[in-house]
Design a protein around this nucleic acid. Structure first.
Lengths: 168, 168
DNA sequence: GCTTGTTACTATGATTTTCATAGCAAATAT
DNA sequence: ATATTTGCTATGAAAATCATAGTAACAAGC
């Protein structure tokens, strides 16, 4: 079995170390990103993250063990599961949002444009990068956000899916 | 040389993937935590993270290459450097804060208590877990926060330092 | 009833990273 | 001259990761 290693967790009071022992891994975070984008199937996650099936399987198993993800049967015969965020998983959203804000601001050239833009349902206007709405100033919650992918980003994701489907 | 691998970065518009190619690693995040706690020396970072010197050295080198950390000479003879956050590094604070909030809330039993509590200078009251001040509601900025370590956490860190100094 | 397709993985062996342990260099302090 | 401090680098074993291939369990079409 694949352990991702996380035993500092029980030896420190530091919440950052505790959190990192659960999500301190690139694939894990990318999987969570996909789940937040409502991709629930193994295949979709594999295609969009580019990780090997073992990487995905190991991470999902650990995420489930850590109470962040739950499996749900969506088809009985053949038995098929989909992956969903638990309450603990949903609560991770602010981290993803902060990571997105930092990534958009500091890891891209301005002319590239945003991958996703959010509209704040509460006020009907652009939400910006958070954590507070750039239009109305209120704190952003996931359920009040409508995401729109930039055409370029949508094409990028479609291309990845097509490429994945093509060679199998 | 030690590459941490980060080339998805240039192939996707996704800011989360971009960010992860830079900070998607447990040691990297723990190093950043230490820098935010104003530990600037190699030794201190090594002692408090528990990583091997190569891990620290490789991560610091990459963080410097990625513009998140800068080295500063604090002693000429013998030549000694300390590590500081750049503007890009400082901008990462909201991610650490969000990670802390999630870790405190979901990765600890309530009776363990907080590792660090923040007072919000703007209103003089407890800041809570953010991103907005739990007392006055305003968004939290690092420069307006005064951190106080819980005695238990302070002792934990002192013990780690002593243990590190002891065996070398 | 046999081939093809779908989905979710598991198996395998090479490559790469990480870990534990030790050591070095360039000074200062004693 | 010897010990100590600080910031690393070297080495080899152990573990994780990667690319590639394959399996299982069924459904659907011919």
């Amino acid at each position: 079995m694949n352990k991702i290693k996380g035993n500092i967790a029980d030896q420190t009071l530091c919440p950052v170390a505790r959190a990192e022992s659960v999500v301190g891994d690139r694939w894990t975070v990318l999987i969570l990103r996909e789940l937040f984008m409502r991709m629930h199937r193994f295949e979709e996650i594999q295609a969009q993250t580019g990780a090997t099936p073992q990487m995905i399987a190991a991470r999902l198993k650990k995420l489930e063990a850590d109470g962040i993800v739950k499996r749900r049967v969506y088809n009985k015969r053949p038995l098929r599961h989909e992956y969903q965020l638990t309450e603990k998983g949903e609560a991770f959203y602010p981290v993803i949002l902060a990571l997105r804000a930092w990534g958009e601001t500091w890891c891209k050239s301005p002319k590239e444009g945003r991958a996703v833009t959010y509209t704040h349902l509460t006020c009907g206007k652009p939400a910006g990068l958070g954590p507070a709405c750039e239009s109305c100033g209120k704190p952003l919650h996931r359920e009040d956000l409508v995401a729109e992918q930039a055409p370029k980003y949508r094409r990028e994701r479609e291309a990845r899916w097509d490429a994945f489907k093509a060679n199998r």
